[in-house]
């Protein structure tokens, strides 16, 4: 069974962390992953930096630009991760934009992920219909779970469609926004969380965007299975460096 599915069966709320590979320093990738696991994080999204990250706010944009300037690229990330499964056992997901994956070759990219022990992929700009028509077989052959997003604007009908196509969890974007732009949740979010919970989807949901501290983590996981923190963690890395990872994780729960 895929590590993501195993993790989703655990009787706890999951804390997932996103970071941009190659940031703050080019070779921090493995250290960050190991430290996050050591301090109790349940799942990690490893961000493959892209020059034009459309769905991201300034924090992740800047970390991506810095990572690319540091020299990060797809092959190097795979190289850094090649022995990761000797030391890390929590689910690992590669998150990025579709163009770098397309240039690497979707098949080669997926095979590499499989060989390393990556469990899932999040490519926000790879649309559901294109995935199903062209790439689903390749993902599946390599044991990769493709994670789809929903937002407060996603129609009920489309949520059902995405639920049917999903095999791990649904990435529930907390509000109509790019990453890193919320501070706290209001009634709109609470209503949305409850509305989705009431749909009784076959896949559990993990909330992302706008989770920055223990309050937002708790609010998001009241109905959802877990939450993903990205921008807030990157801000912390920028200020405290990789030595402060324990503090950050402990501040969330």
């Amino acid at each position: 069974m895929n590590r993501i599915n195993q993790k989703l069966q655990e009787n706890k709320k999951l804390l997932s962390i996103y970071f941009t590979a190659g940031y703050p320093a080019l070779n921090d990738t493995v250290r960050i992953i190991q430290d996050l696991e050591k301090h109790g994080v349940d799942m990690i999204e490893i961000g493959l930096p892209f020059s034009d990250p459309l769905a991201d706010g300034p924090t992740i944009q800047e970390s991506s630009t810095a990572a690319l300037q540091n020299g990060m690229h797809t092959e190097l990330l795979f190289e850094q991760l090649k022995d990761i499964r000797k030391t890390v056992s929590i689910p690992l997901i590669v998150m990025g934009y579709f163009n770098p994956m397309l240039q690497y070759g979707v098949e080669a990219f997926c095979k590499k992920c499989h060989d390393i022990g990556i469990d899932g992929i999040i490519m926000p700009d790879l649309p559901l219909d294109v995935y199903q028509e062209e790439y689903e077989d390749i993902f599946k052959k390599n044991g990769l779970i493709n994670v789809f997003l929903i937002t407060p604007q996603t129609s009920k009908e489309r949520i059902r469609q995405i639920d049917a196509a999903s095999e791990g969890f649904i990435y529930m974007v907390s509000s109509a926004s790019v990453t890193g732009s919320q501070s706290g949740f209001g009634n709109t979010q609470t209503d949305y969380f409850e509305r989705i919970a009431a749909m009784q989807l076959k896949n559990q949901q993990i909330v992302g965007f706008g989770i920055s501290n223990s309050e937002t983590f708790e609010a998001a996981t009241k109905t959802a299975k877990g939450a993903i923190i990205g921008s807030a963690f990157i801000k912390h890395l920028t200020k405290q460096g990789v030595d402060g990872i324990a503090d950050f994780v402990q501040s969330i729960r």
């Binding site: 700009d125 790879l126 789809f148």
Partner: peptide, 11 residues
């Protein structure tokens, strides 16, 4: 062509 957009832009 096509529409390679994140779900946030789908609606």
């Amino acid at each position: 062509g096509g529409a390679f957009i994140p779900e946030m832009l789908y609606p």
